[in-house]
């Protein structure tokens, strides 16, 4: 029975992936891409990787899908040609993708068979400061990767803001939203945030012991902010807001500070010694979650645009 389920799931994933790449129309491709992300997260649950499933559903399917949809909407608004000419594949793009796929396949075959991390990880886990092995790996044993990931997010936002025009720089982020007062969208925007904030904070907090963490919780919090902004309940901030800029960098900063503290205590940069590991990871998680939430929400809202001034 479970074999039938897994086989169906695998078949669906491959079929939806093909539909994403081969189907006609950008909008259709995006919809299939979102479905693909959701199916992948079901597959991660079947593999027992709930942390990855949460991240895939929230970031891979949800947030990336919204980013794509926003990009298509923007292309349509500016009158740019979003649809490629039918029937003719884009040869350089196809070659680049085929090359990347080939390189990944080669890497997969060339790498040595990974040993199950069980025994090493189980031996090291008591010194990690947290009980969730995924969080221990992300924020302690392989902290470099996570630190760089959080900085990449920041760099992406800086790159996006570079697209703003000079005369728009002091306007609010994104386009203003027009909603009917007391309408469906506004009511939704009022009802969802209390539950969403609770779920987001819970996901960050529980990350130390069980599936969850800064990335998953931060994405949920970003989504809550986006819903409130779309419903016209909050006005988007400005690029020049110091508090928001501070929120964007506090995650990487706290992470770096914890890394330096590790070096000062003699354990080495980004190696958290056992006495401070638990507290440091908790601080990093909270700071990272706020940075991730703000940065992701700003990425979706887009650079400042004219239109807020009447």
């Amino acid at each position: 029975m479970t074999l039938a389920l897994d086989a169906t799931l695998c078949g669906l994933i491959v079929a939806v992936a093909l539909a994403t790449v081969l189907g006609r129309g950008v909008f259709r491709a995006i919809v299939f891409f979102i479905v693909y992300g959701l199916l992948l997260s079901v597959a991660w649950v079947r593999l027992g990787a709930v942390d990855v499933a949460l991240a895939e559903a929230a970031i891979g399917a949800g947030l990336t899908g919204v980013l794509f949809l926003a990009a298509v909407g923007k292309l349509a608004r500016t009158g740019a040609e979003a649809e490629p000419a039918p029937g003719r594949p884009h040869l350089p793009a196809a070659l680049a993708c085929a090359g990347l796929t080939g390189a990944l396949a080669w890497a997969w075959f060339a790498l040595p068979e990974p040993e199950r991390p069980g025994s090493d990880l189980a031996a090291a886990l008591p010194r990690a400061g947290v009980e969730n092995p995924v969080t221990a790996v992300l924020l302690n044993f392989r902290a470099w990767d996570t630190l760089l990931e959080s900085i990449v997010l920041l760099a992406a936002l800086v790159g996006l803001w570079l697209l703003a025009r000079d005369e728009d720089w002091h306007d609010r982020l994104g386009l203003p939203q027009h909603v009917r007062p007391g309408g469906v969208m506004e009511s939704f925007g009022r009802l969802l945030p209390p539950v969403g904030v609770l779920v987001g904070i819970y996901l960050v907090y529980i990350g130390a012991d069980r599936p969850g963490g800064a990335f998953q919780g931060g994405t949920v919090l970003a989504a809550v902010g986006l819903v409130a902004a779309l419903a016209g309940l909050i006005r988007t901030p400005r690029v020049t807001g110091h508090l928001w800029r501070a929120a964007m960098v506090v995650g990487p900063l706290v992470f770096l500070a914890a890394g330096v503290a590790g070096a000062a205590l003699g354990a080495g940069f980004l190696t958290l010694p056992e006495p401070i590991a638990g507290g440091a990871i908790f601080a990093i998680e909270i700071a990272l979650a706020s940075s991730i939430a703000v940065t992701l929400a700003f990425l979706v809202i887009g650079p400042p645009e004219r239109g807020h001034r009447r």
Partner: peptide, 13 residues
């Protein structure tokens, strides 16, 4: 409950 809320809102929009 959340699904009901989301479905009702999205279908209206």
């Amino acid at each position: 409950g959340l699904m009901l809320l989301a479905a009702a809102t999205v279908s209206q929009l």
